[in-house]
Design a protein around this nucleic acid. Structure first.
Length: 242
DNA sequence: CGTCTTTGACCAGCGC
DNA sequence: GCGCTGGTCAAAGACG
């Protein structure tokens, strides 16, 4: 699946990037802004990757409102009939919450051609998935064997590093990465038997842009992570409504 | 006291 | 094989 929503993606523009393999594609398009959560900025969905295959979904916009990724998938699943729902023009995926999307749900067999042309998409981010994505393009770099969990990467403009996505995370590492002025933080879902991880880092070229990469699938709902005393009820409500 | 963050060390993948 | 780099571990400290 290769989807690129350029400037004005909220206007319903969606087009397919060149694909080297003849495989079914999924198309998403948003006609108007979705209901934002409390996250501070519209995320730019940079890439989805599954197993050793890569999927690209690029969404860029200058709008400064947040569209939760789960919304895209929930709407695509037919959870909304309003005009705000993104239409699925291709095959119909069956994913629910964003971090839960899995290979068997939306994956197709493709080779990556990621269009790092939009603002921020080429902002110096050089994570592992990026290297993996380059494998398909240059045919030299090998896909890392460790990349087996479904990944979901998006970009937001925010002053805070950790965006509240409804799940509870524990930080287990921080690393200064090459070609980045800002350290990358590593988080793990605190829910037992849930091995979802996420990485958070800021663009070196724009310190306000936060790149969040989810890896794996949650085995629970966000509600399971939110204790009555410490949880963000607004967040829980928003995510549960999808 | 339990939980979480910090941070240096260690390990594995990858390119040369 | 070696060095670089990213990802993870785990001990120590901070905090409520």
């Amino acid at each position: 699946m290769h989807i690129c929503m350029d400037q004005g993606s909220h206007l319903g523009m969606a087009y397919r990037l060149p694909n080297l393999h003849a495989v079914p594609d999924h198309y998403y398009t948003t006609s108007v802004p979705l209901s934002p959560l409390q996250l501070p900025c519209l995320p730019k969905l940079l890439q989805m990757s599954f197993d050793q295959e890569e999927e690209a979904l690029l969404i860029s916009s200058d709008q400064c409102a947040l569209y939760p990724l789960p919304t895209l998938l929930a709407f695509s699943h037919g959870h909304s009939s309003s005009a705000t729902a993104p239409a699925v023009l291709g095959e119909k995926p069956t994913a629910g919450y964003m971090p839960n999307i899995g290979a068997e749900e939306v994956s197709t067999s493709v080779t990556t051609r990621v269009g790092y042309e939009g603002a921020g998409c080429n902002g110096g981010y050089s994570g592992t998935w990026w290297r993996g994505s380059m494998a398909g393009e240059k045919g030299k770099m090998k896909v890392r064997r460790k990349m087996r969990e479904p990944r979901f990467c998006f970009q937001t403009r925010s002053d805070v590093d950790v965006l509240d996505d409804g799940y509870k995370w524990r930080k287990y590492g921080q690393k200064v990465v090459k070609n980045s002025l800002h350290p990358r933080s590593y988080f793990r879902c605190t829910h037992s038997n849930c091995r979802v991880k996420k990485r958070v880092e800021r663009l070196s070229t724009d310190c306000r842009m936060v790149i969040t990469t989810y890896e794996g699938r949650h085995t629970h709902t966000p509600c399971d992570d939110t204790s009555p005393s410490s949880g963000d009820h607004h967040t829980t409500t928003c995510f549960s409504s999808f």
